[in-house]
Simulated assay, not measured.
Amino acid sequence: MDSVLLDAPEGILARLGWDPRLDERARVVALARELVAAHENADATTVRVDGETPAQSGHHVQLEATVAGKPVPLTIKAVSFRTATVAAVADAAVPIGLDIRDLTPDEVTLREMRRHSHLIDGGSDHVLLNHWTRVQAVLAADGRGLRVHPEQVRLDAPLNKGWVSDRRVFYRLKDLSRDAWVITLAYGGFPGH
Rank of each mutant, 00 (worst) to 15 (best):
V4S: 15
P9S: 13
I12M: 02
L13Y: 06
L13C: 03
A14Y: 01
A14W: 02
L16W: 14
W18A: 14
D19C: 11
D19Y: 07
R21Q: 10
L22E: 06
D23Q: 07
E24K: 07
R25Q: 14
A26P: 01
A26T: 13
R27H: 06
R27Y: 01
V28I: 05
V28Y: 03
V28F: 01
V29H: 04
A30Q: 08
A32E: 02
R33Y: 04
E34D: 12
L35T: 02
L35N: 08
V36Y: 00
V36G: 00
A38L: 09
T45H: 08
T45M: 08
T46K: 02
V47C: 04
V47F: 00
R48P: 00
R48I: 12
R48L: 12
D50L: 13
E52G: 01
T53V: 15
P54C: 05
P54M: 07
S57L: 12
G58I: 05
H59G: 05
H59A: 14
V61S: 11
Q62V: 14
Q62E: 14
A65P: 04
A65Q: 08
T66E: 13
V67H: 05
V72C: 08
V72A: 04
I76D: 10
A78C: 11
R82S: 14
A84P: 03
A87Y: 01
A88D: 04
V89A: 10
V89W: 00
A90H: 11
I96R: 02
I96W: 05
I100Q: 00
I100Y: 07
D102R: 08
T104E: 13
P105H: 03
V108T: 14
V108L: 06
E112R: 11
E112W: 03
M113F: 11
R114Q: 12
R115Q: 13
R115K: 14
R115L: 14
R115V: 08
H116L: 15
S117M: 09
S117Y: 05
H118C: 05
L119A: 11
G122A: 10
G123A: 09
D125G: 09
V127A: 15
V127M: 08
L129R: 01
L129F: 01
Q136H: 06
L139C: 10
L139A: 07
L139R: 06
A141F: 04
D142I: 04
G145L: 06
G145I: 07
G145H: 06
L146C: 03
R147Q: 12
R147C: 04
V153G: 09
V153N: 02
D156Q: 03
A157G: 01
A157V: 13
P158D: 15
L159D: 03
L159M: 12
L159Q: 05
N160F: 06
K161A: 02
S165F: 08
S165G: 05
S165C: 15
R167F: 11
R167E: 13
Y171I: 06
R172Q: 15
L173K: 07
L173G: 12
K174C: 15
K174D: 10
K174W: 06
D175P: 12
L176D: 09
S177Y: 11
D179R: 12
V182K: 07
T184I: 03
L185H: 01
L185T: 04
A186Q: 01
Y187M: 09
G189N: 13
P191G: 08
G192L: 04
G192V: 07
